[in-house]
Amino acid sequence: MATAEMIKTIAQAPDKEYYLPGHRTCAGCGPALAYRLIAKASGKNTIFVGPTGCMYVANTSYACGPWAVPWTHAQITNAGAVGSGIAEAFKMMIKKGKIKDEYPNIICMAGDGGSIDIGLQAASAMMYRGHDVLFVMYDNESYANTGIQTSPMTPYGAATMFTPPGPEIPEAKKFFPKDPMAIFCGGGHPAVKYGATASIAYPVDLMNKVRKGLAQEGPAFLHVQCPCPKGWTFPANRTVEIGRLAVETGMWFMYELEDGVKKWSILPKQLKPVEEYLQTQGRFAHLKPEHVAKLQAWVNARVQTLGLEVPLPPAR
């Protein structure tokens, strides 16, 4: 495994941009910020695979795009498979001497749908087969590009176009989300030696996790929470603040799994009540106390599952 060059402070982050100004993402877009930070961390020798989703549609409108490095579209279904093909093509062409390239960083930038829902099969197979690709799941917790429909990552209680609240279904979305880290890095994909969660609210941590994932020979997985002003219904200037609040309330946990060993990136001393997070977003505006309590109980159970020792707010 190559050693990743770590970034210690914001000031140390590379100046050079590879995700440039000029894209049709919404003002305050969390996934766009993630893209910029990831491109910055990975640098020039990088190829992005962009399956359909916000980061395809909003970035490439009108036959153009904001990347200074090679980028290709993939279907929402097949980022993992296209990434696999690119990886093995480079390996074989380099081996045969057909090209002089250095093996590139290959990064699949898939949304939650393209990673854990319709794209799950291809992502899983890529990780099983051990291709040297970093699979990034930029998670804005919905199918946002199509106008905010529920995905497996949409939290319990969130309103989306497909899960509107009403007298018969007062809590809006009824299911609790999938756990991608458990799916990809919980031992079910032995070739994945590095996986991490990250957030756009913690940019240095995110960039270092990108570099660690890329330095890892073989597949790596990064699950990045990306608040979405449009989908979550909050003012565009609060994207980072809400990302932080998610971590402070236990709606998002920041950790790495390296060779199966868990390492906390941010260890909250105390979790704030989940209600503080819910209040910031219109998608939760309809929730009644019993629904909030149900979410708090879910957070508290997650804390236990993840083995985090932290005082918990009471689940009413």
Binding site: G28, P203, A236
Partner: peptide, 28 residues
């Protein structure tokens, strides 16, 4: 570091400057 649109320019001499050609005004 937090600008989603890479519209904050920075130099030691000039400090912070904004790329108003692209800045969407999100306020982050």
């Amino acid at each position: 570091i937090f600008c989603p649109d890479a519209c904050v320019d920075f130099s030691k001499d000039e400090g912070v400057d904004f790329n108003l050609k692209y800045c969407k005004g999100c306020g982050v």
